[in-house]
């Protein structure tokens, strides 16, 4: 309980401890703390950025998907249109062809009919003359009556 030199000794020891602490203990520890704080802040920042990037990428992907959907829909529609167009064209061509074939057939038929008529006419003329010869049992001047018979044949 006596005040003595210890008090000075304590002051000196205290002084050296504080100086040592200030020079060799405090700065490295607080520097490490500070650096860790910075690292954590950077890490959080990076995480934030990554999240934002991810969101943007998702949006981009969705937009791309939408685009391609629209594109494919357009392509399908175009194809459908083209297909129906081809069908229509084919129909038209077939129609035209059929018409042409029909017309040709009709022409053929008409020609055939005319030819048959012609043949029939000549045969009828011959037949008529022969018949008239038999009926009259007289010689008919072929030359003199040919005109008459032709006229008859033409009337048939």
């Amino acid at each position: 309980m006596n005040i003595n030199l210890t008090i000075i000794g304590q002051i000196i020891a205290f002084f050296f401890f504080v100086v040592f602490c200030m020079k060799y203990v405090w700065p490295p520890i607080t520097a490490a703390l500070e650096e860790r704080k910075k690292k954590i802040a950077e890490g959080l920042d990076a995480a934030d950025r990554a999240e934002r990037d991810l969101l943007a990428a998702k949006e981009q992907a969705e937009a791309d998907m939408q685009d391609s959907k629209e594109q494919s829909a357009a392509i399908i529609e175009q194809a459908n249109k083209r297909a129906s167009q081809i069908v229509d064209e084919a129909k038209e061509a077939a129609h035209v062809e059929a018409e042409r074939i029909k017309l040709a057939a009709q022409a053929d038929i008409e020609q055939e009919v005319n030819r048959a008529k012609e043949t029939l006419r000549t045969q009828v003329a011959v037949l008529a003359i022969a018949g008239a010869e038999k009926i009259l049992e007289a010689t008919v001047d072929e030359a003199a009556h040919a005109k008459l018979v032709d006229k008859l044949a033409a009337e048939l």
Binding site: Y24, V25, W26, P27, P28, I29, A31, A32, K39
Partner: peptide, 13 residues
Amino acid sequence: LWLFRKVAINATS
């Protein structure tokens, strides 16, 4: 001081 100095030397962030 010895204890804290030891930590301070090896302090890692």
